[in-house]
Amino acid sequence: MNSASAVAFAVLTGGTMGGGLILLLAALPRWSAVPLARRIAPYLRDVVAEEDLPAGARPRQGILPAGDHRLWTRAQGLFGRALGGSDALRLRLAQSGSAIEQSAFRGRQLGWVLAGIAAGALVLIAAAVWGRMSPPIALAPALLGAAAGVGYDMLLTALVRSRRRRLTDELPTTLEFLALCLSAGEGFLDSLRRVAAVGSGEMTSEFRRVVLAAGTGSSLADALAEMSRRLELPGLTRAIDQVIAALEHGAPLASVLHAQAGDAREDAKRVLIEQAGRKEILMLLPLVFLILPLSVLFAIYPGLFILRLGIG
């Protein structure tokens, strides 16, 4: 066993022992006295907001809690504060349609980072054992951990982009369906309820949330404005602004929705034309870098072959 193998073995055994000691310390009960804030918090819940209470004073929700997860919760909090952007992350999670909360997303991202670090550590130990140690390999744990965290964040970004694209595609049809229901004599809330019950897709699921919010005490205008702020779609924002203005001034909603559906279709047509222009440029890449060089090669190679043979 050479020195590199000895160092790798020492790092592996030391890391395993340190992890076991940390787990044992985390499982031990706390012998210190309960803080005053936690002792008086249950008696002040009627005058103190829920978010201002200590974490241990609020009752836990869930099914059969298996144990104490204070260490993991604290690690999630530190990881989330280090990355920052809590409001932006909350908005992106809402736009992606995911049911997980911000803390759960940060916990999963932290798990991906730890998995990447563990994979990099295994690569580092394997390289040390085989005698292939080099400075780039020494950075493998940090690089793989960072790549795993960034990859999980990019996955959320891809989900948001995909869902926003589906919402934009469904918007004109949904607005026309609403306009048809209004033309048939139904009220706006009844039309929303019918679309939410009959339709399927991302936009109808958002309308279900609006109907649920309107049925639980929120005004219809506030529920629509909250959906507009959450999704941040230009076409939907314009349509909701026009609908709220029509509701306040008593204007006919059917004609407003027909006009907004036409505008949404024009926007979709413009987006398709822009995408076609970008795809046309991308289609030139294989033509310039693959087809044209092969054509030149097929045209020149026979002449070079003949010159090499000295024919003619």
Rank of each mutant, 00 (worst) to 15 (best):
D169I: 06
Q109H: 11
L124E: 06
L110D: 03
L110I: 02
R164T: 13
L110F: 04
G131K: 06
A99L: 09
L83G: 12
G84Y: 01
A126H: 01
V150S: 09
E186V: 14
A140M: 09
R106E: 12
A75C: 10
S96M: 00
L156N: 00
G111E: 10
D87Y: 12
A99V: 12
A147F: 06
M154G: 00
V160E: 06
A142L: 15
P141H: 04
W130K: 14
L156K: 00
G149E: 03
T157V: 08
S98G: 03
A94N: 05
S134I: 04
A104V: 07
G111I: 09
Q76A: 08
E170P: 06
A104P: 05
A146G: 05
R166C: 01
P172F: 03
D169Y: 02
R164H: 11
L93K: 12
F105G: 01
G107L: 02
A121L: 13
L110C: 01
F79T: 15
A142W: 14
P141L: 04
L93P: 08
A118T: 07
F105I: 08
G85L: 14
A119S: 08
G107S: 04
T173S: 15
G149Q: 04
S183L: 13
I137Q: 01
L122Q: 02
R132D: 09
A158N: 10
G151H: 01
V113D: 04
L139N: 00
E176N: 11
T168A: 15
T168F: 02
G97R: 04
R81P: 14
G77Y: 06
V113F: 08
R92P: 03
A121R: 09
R163W: 00
S183K: 15
A119M: 08
F79S: 14
D153L: 14
A115T: 08
P172Y: 01
R163P: 03
L178A: 00
A138S: 07
A118Q: 02
A158Q: 11
D87G: 15
A148Q: 07
F177L: 13
L167Q: 09
L124V: 09
L93W: 13
T174D: 06
L78G: 09
L155I: 05
R161T: 06
E186M: 15
G84H: 00
R106H: 12
A128P: 01
Q95T: 07
V129D: 14
R161P: 01
G77M: 05
L171P: 07
L139F: 04
I117P: 04
G97L: 02
I125Y: 11
A88R: 13
L178P: 01
Q102H: 12
G77A: 09
R161M: 04
F105C: 02
Q109F: 09
R90D: 02
L114V: 10
